[in-house]
Structures are given as C-alpha cells and as structure tokens.
C-alpha cells in the first residue's frame, strides 16, 4: 500500500514538472512572437513618422499632386487605427502602394530628385521598408513555429485550456494588394 502511494506521489510530481515544462515552453514561444510583433510595430510606426517629412518635401516641388497626398494620409490613419496583425498588414500595404506612387511622381521632378534631403528621406524610407520586410519574415517564422507547437503533442493537450490560441500571420487578407518590396534608389 505504502509502495503504491509513493509511486502515485512520484507520478504526480513527474506529471506536474512535465506540465510546467510544457507550459513554460509555450510561454517562451508566445513571448517570442509578441516581441517580434512589437518589432514590426516599431518599424511601422517609424515609417509612419517618416511620411510627413517626405510629403512636405515633395509638396515643396509638386504641390498640385493632391490625390496621392490624400491617399497617403488615409492609409496612415488606417494604420494608426489597426488592431490586428492582418489589419495592420492591410493598412501597411495600402501605405506602401501610396508611397510607391509618390516616389513615381517624384521621378517627374528633376529638382526634387536632386534634393539632398529628399534622397536621405528616401534612404530612410526604403531602409525602414526593408526592416519591415525582415521583421515580417521573422515574425511569420515565429508564428508558424508557435502555431505548430500548440497543435503538437504534448502541448496540444494543455494549450487550449490554458488559453494559448493560434496567432495571426502578418499578412494582408487575400486580395488586398500584394506586399511591396522595398524600392531601391537609383543614381
């Protein structure tokens, strides 16, 4: 009897420790995903902050291109109001599209293209876009690993009851514009 009792006690301890291990693993992964998400947000914010400067510089040379300025302003406010990764991704894609058009317009203004300030803003902008692309890839990779882990044994037994849900990829919903690659500056 005593033997049985201690066996049960050891089994319970083992299960508890194993459970804690699984739980801690999920917490680590989940935190990793959240950290990567905040990296993306930092970069999105950084780009949104660059936009007013860029718009102001372009306006100095091409004040009448109102349509694209409005488009940019709208995309920016959408980005500020986005709550989920896919909303953010959609707003980000819209902003990318509008910025692409802004840069295309600037091609028609040689003086603007030669403006030192404009060139450096463009560097910052494409650098930030590249960082967003990198952060997105890292984030999606972590989400993929996390989503797989909560579906794999033994974590799948405890993930649901403990509130570890599937996480969203940073991707615009299908059909809302392909994600743009960072434009590179030509001389």
């Amino acid at each position: 009897m005593k033997g049985n009792f201690s066996t049960v006690a050891v089994a319970a301890a083992v299960l508890a420790i194993a459970g804690c291990n699984v739980y801690n693993g999920l917490v680590n992964r989940s935190e990793g995903v959240d950290a990567a998400w905040s990296d993306i947000n930092t970069m999105l914010q950084r780009r949104a902050d660059l936009v007013p400067n860029l718009v102001a510089t372009v306006k100095g040379y091409a004040a009448h291109e109102n349509e694209v300025f409005t488009e940019i302003a709208e995309a920016r406010s959408k980005l500020a109001g986005a709550k989920t990764p896919s909303e953010s991704a959609a707003a980000d894609a819209a902003l990318s599209g509008a910025l692409g058009r802004l840069l295309a317009i600037s091609e028609a203004y040689p003086e603007l293209k030669a403006n030192e300030n404009f060139l450096r803003l463009q560097d910052e902008l494409s650098g930030t876009e590249n960082r967003i692309a990198v952060a997105r890839k890292d984030y999606n990779g972590l989400v993929k690993a996390y989503n797989a882990s909560i579906r794999r044994l033994p974590a799948s037994l405890v993930a649901g009851p403990l509130g570890f849900d599937k996480k969203d990829y940073f991707e615009p919903p299908a059909g809302e514009g392909a994600v743009q690659t960072a434009p590179s500056v030509s001389f």
Partner: peptide, 24 residues
C-alpha cells in the same frame, strides 16, 4: 522508469526550446 519518463520529457522539452531558438 518514472524518472526516465521525466528525463525524456525534459529532454523533449529542451528540444522544443532548441527549435524555438533556431526559429528565432
């Protein structure tokens, strides 16, 4: 046997952590 099961579990767990680090 139980301890071995625990050992295997913990190793499995650290393998998980390992893949997570790789992914990071």
């Amino acid at each position: 046997k139980l301890l071995m099961a625990l050992g295997a579990g913990a190793i499995l767990q650290s393998c998980h952590t390992q893949t997570q680090n790789d992914a990071a």
